[in-house]
Amino acid sequence: MTLTREDLPISQSPIVSKRAEFAAMARQHEDALLRTARRMCGADKDLAQDIVQDALVSAYRAYLDGRFDGRHPAAWLTRILTNCFLYAKRQNRTETGLDEEVIANMQGSMDHGWNSNIPGPDTKLMRETFSEPMERALMSLPESQRLCVLLADVEELPYAEVAAALDIPIGTVRSRLARARMQMLTVIRDMNQLEVLV
């Protein structure tokens, strides 16, 4: 007797099995995704968790549509996470009327506060969340540079994939990385932490 799709118990139906497969993959990568999202979002843990969940839903849609070739799941999920982060930023900009330059300036003011003796509430939160010199140097970068470093230097995506994920030319990836790395070295030196690079 040949079983048809309808004869299978629900728990063994192809769609449930696909969902279980995907959930297993997602759980395997959730801590890496949350780490990356935290670094994208600064100290906003709730936003990071929301973005990871949105990314997993988008990824599941793509998975069901056969748009995942089964190779390099970490890189694939990181690209989707990046898209979700950029989408969330665009939505926020629309709602608040802030443009990227304003957000970058706000970020810069916050960064400057790290060297201040009297940290404001945001600065204090950032200090507690990103206490390591490398984390603080990373968080000192403007968002556009931080994303390049996160994708290329931390997650080790090839430059072409970083360019595709951020929708910028490869040359821009290279120049942003060069500026970002110099900025990070400067921040590490200003914290008197160059010895961490020995």
């Binding site: 969902r19 995907f22 959930a23 997602a26 959730e30 801590d31 890496a32 949350l34 780490r35 935290r38 968790q49 990871v52 969940q53 997993l56 839903v57 599941y60 490398m134 984390e135 990373l138 470093v149 230097d153 931390v154 997650e155 080790e156 790395r181 990070m184 070295l185 590490i188 961490v196 690079l197």
Partner: peptide
């Protein structure tokens, strides 16, 4: 510095996880 940045992809060692409520909500969205 690049060596340290690469190591950050697996650090901090203490894993961050979504809680079970968030997973339930995700399953519903799936």
């Amino acid at each position: 510095m690049l060596g340290k940045l690469r190591r950050m992809s697996t650090e901090p060692a203490e894993p961050e996880k979504l809680d079970e409520k968030q997973w339930e909500s995700l399953e519903a969205r799936f």
